[in-house]
Every structure is written in C-alpha cells, then in structure tokens.
Design a protein around this nucleic acid. Structure first.
Lengths: 144, 144
DNA sequence: CCGAGCTGCTAAGTATACAAAGCGAATTCA
DNA sequence: TGAATTCGCTTTGTATACTTAGCAGCTCGG
C-alpha cells in the first residue's frame, strides 16, 4: 500500500493561516478537534461505542459518545473526559486541553509544554515500525 | 475584632430557606462547599461582586457569581473556576476539586507507559492525529 | 428630601450537556 | 430464508450552566 491516501488529508498544517481543510466534521476549534481525536482513539483501540460505554462503567453512554465523536457536543464534562482518558490510556490533561479547558499552571507561565496524547501502550513491534516509517514520510513531505 | 462581626454580615440569608444553620467557613478547616469557599475568598479580598466581574474581564458576571456563592450552581465550568482562581490567587486545582471535578493525578500518580523508542515528544498536534488515524487504519485492515 | 451611585440578589430566557429509547443497516446464525 | 445481534447514529426530553435586565436596600452629596 501507499501512503498517499493519508497524505492527502494531512496538508492542513495550521501555521499558514490557510483555512483548515478537514473532512466533513468541520468546526473551528483552536487545536485539532476533540471529536476527531476521540474517534481515532477508539478506532485505534478497536472498540465499539457500546464497548466503551461498558468500559467506562456506563459513565459514558454509547449514544453520547457518538455525539461526542461527531462534534455535536463541544465541551463535555471533565469527568466524562477522565473516564475516556482511562479507557483509551491517554493523559487526562490532553483531552482537557482539546476540549478547550484551561490547565493548571498554564496561565502566565511561559512554559509551553505539548502533551502527547499519543500514548498507546499496546503497540506491536510491527505497528511501531510502521508508524515510525509513516512519521518519517509525513515529515519529509511537510517542511515546517 | 471577633468573629461575631462576620455573623452579622450574614444575618440575612435565604429567608424561607431550608438552611438556617450556618456552616463553618474557611476559617475553620476546609469549607464544605464550593459556594462557601468562593464567598469567603471574595470577602477576604474585600471585593464586591462587580469588582470581581471586572477583575475577570467580564468572564464572570456579578449576577452569576452571586448564584455561585449562594449554591445555585453546582458545577461551574473549569474556565470559570480558572478565572476566579486567578483573581483570588488560589490554586486552580483547589477550586476544581471543590467543584467535584477529577484531577489529573487521579490514577496511580506514577509515570509510566511511555512509548518505547518512539520520538513522541516533539510531535505536532497534526502529526499526532495523523498517526492515530494511520494506526486505526492499520488495525482495521489486520484484525488480530 | 432626592437623586446618584453603590451593594447583593433575582426572575426569566437561552444554550447546551447529557439520558433514554429506538431506528436502519449490516452481520451472524439458525 | 428469517430471527437475533450488533453496529453507529438520531430523536426527544430534561436538567442545568450561563446571560441579560432589572429590583430593593443602603449610603452618599446636594
């Protein structure tokens, strides 16, 4: 297979001031979308909506999660984000930030720390290699 | 000055309210409720409701702050709490906790699950999302 | 006294997070 | 073939965060 299919969706690096050119789920949102992130995380784990609902002990219903992933809810409660962060094994703060909430000690401080929401912990060796290759491809294509 | 002075300022609580009993305020240990804490903090600073509204750059209206202090709003947005934490010079997390939100250090507290051999730390948000998408794609094509 | 300017507070309306139920399409199993 | 799951998603309803406008009380200067 080729990387082209994914490469086409990339081109929307924010810096140029050009309008983001995302797929149907369009909205403004300063960082990349929370909705897309949640959808990607779930698919990366290979879970269904109802499986996530179960994994959160019914804290997040499948119907609600669907609305979240489709951008119909903009600011879910921090507690909802916490539940999802646990299931997806990503840092809670990352989801908070994408939801537009201010983080502790963010204000005033000049320290700009970027949170890696990418903390999938069950990568196989092959997957890791594939991802590294793909990352190299991405960076070769987009001189930022 | 005695604490009696504080009592007189509070004499006119909710008239028909179901809460004639005065709760211990911030002077004695932890205030039980967010509302009491916010009220105490503001009085400690000697600010009026409208002065706080001004200090938060209209982020928190005086009317809304009044409702907050009277317990009519149970879970204000984290961003509201952040604004108030700044004005009152108290840690943001403290207000978050009082409001019933879960804090980042909730699970375990120990650091772990860093993706091995993966140069994640300098990922841009866009790269991160692209990688997630790609991983989802990989796994959808080869279901284990 | 009388209005101006404060104080905290409230009533009413809007926006939206979230819940419960169920639908159409796809898959699986008889 | 058809019944039963399971999928994502939508629809409807409710609770509540938040906004806007304004009121009653107090204090001040005139």
């Amino acid at each position: 297979m080729t990387y082209q299919a994914f490469g086409t969706t990339l081109r929307s690096l924010r810096n140029g001031g050009t309008r983001p050119r995302r797929k149907p789920s369009a909205f403004i949102g300063q960082p990349a979308e929370l909705s897309a992130l949640l959808a990607d995380l779930r698919r990366a784990k290979g879970l269904s909506l109802r499986e996530v609902e179960e994994a959160t002990d019914k804290a997040v219903s499948n119907a609600y999660l669907s609305q979240l992933e489709n951008g119909k809810i903009k600011k879910p409660s921090p507690n909802v984000l916490h539940s999802l962060a646990e299931v997806y094994a990503v840092p809670y703060e990352a989801l908070m930030e994408k939801a537009g909430y201010l983080l502790p000690s963010e204000n005033g401080g000049g320290r700009r720390k970027r949170l890696a929401a990418f903390a999938i912990d069950d990568l196989t060796a092959e997957e890791e290699e594939e991802l590294l290759k793909y990352l190299a491809f991405l960076r070769s294509r987009t001189p930022s």
